[in-house]
């Protein structure tokens, strides 16, 4: 405690194209006796369940995690939801993506994802230059807007604007999507009248110029990631 430095060990999981992380992690942990772990999950899309498994493996080795790094926003969401410090790594692939190239100049000026914890109440407005991740609800009368994607770990019942600088590929994702109004780039849509299926994470995106709401398929589980 008294000024004693805990040594930080770095672990970088292999890319999911190469090898499974579990075996790699176990052998890696055998070499480490003490200290805290700074873990880079690279391109692994981890759900909370996956992360819990990873954390318990590290726990069993008697070690603690100091920070979880990832290239994948969803892994960051899961890690943050489990109460870990996180860091989103922006990859080169981000820039090369053809359909984002136009707008990414703007987004990349401030490449950080903005985290906000807490509910946005009526009259409040959360704005972000890049992507925004909210851990909490957006209540009716509140507004959340971002240059990139809007991700809400909670209920969206107010107004959300993704791609406010014109990024047409921006998406709005929420655990419960029942907004008053949705805006993506320059398109505006009123929220659906009917209630969403409970427990279904939904996502809104532009499909040929119209805002469409669909169950959020994990675009990560599909082999080809758009960005």
């Amino acid at each position: 405690m008294q000024g004693m430095e805990v040594e930080t060990r770095f672990i970088t999981l292999p890319s999911r194209k190469k090898a499974d992380w579990r075996g790699y992690l176990s052998t890696k942990l055998n070499e480490i006796r003490s200290g805290q772990i700074d873990i880079n999950c690279q391109d692994w899309p981890f759900s909370c369940r996956d992360l819990k498994q990873l954390i318990s493996i590290i726990d069993r080795a008697g070690l603690k995690i100091s920070i979880i790094r990832s290239e994948i926003p969803e892994t960051i969401v899961s890690a943050a939801a489990l109460g870990h410090e996180t860091f989103l790594i922006l990859t080169k692939g981000h820039k090369e993506s053809p359909n984002r190239a136009l707008t990414d100049l703007r987004v990349n000026k401030d490449p950080n994802i903005l985290f906000h914890e807490g509910t946005l109440r009526s009259g409040e407005h959360l704005e972000a230059e890049g992507d925004v991740l909210l851990l909490g609800d957006v209540n009716p009368g509140a507004k959340i807007s971002a240059g990139g994607n809007v991700m809400i770990w909670g209920r969206l019942r107010g107004i959300a604007h993704a791609g406010k600088y014109g990024d047409q590929t921006a998406k709005i994702t929420a655990l419960e999507l029942r907004p008053l109004q949705l805006r993506i780039a320059n398109e505006v849509a009123r929220g659906p009248e009917e209630l969403p299926e409970p427990g279904l994470t939904e996502q809104a995106e532009l499909v040929s110029g119209k805002i469409v709401i669909q169950p959020a398929r994990s675009r990560l589980s599909s082999p080809k990631r758009p960005n």
Partner: peptide, 12 residues
């Protein structure tokens, strides 16, 4: 309820 929500935000 909407106004109360606003007020709660301000109280916070």
């Amino acid at each position: 309820v909407r106004d109360a929500d606003r007020v709660i935000g301000l109280l916070n």
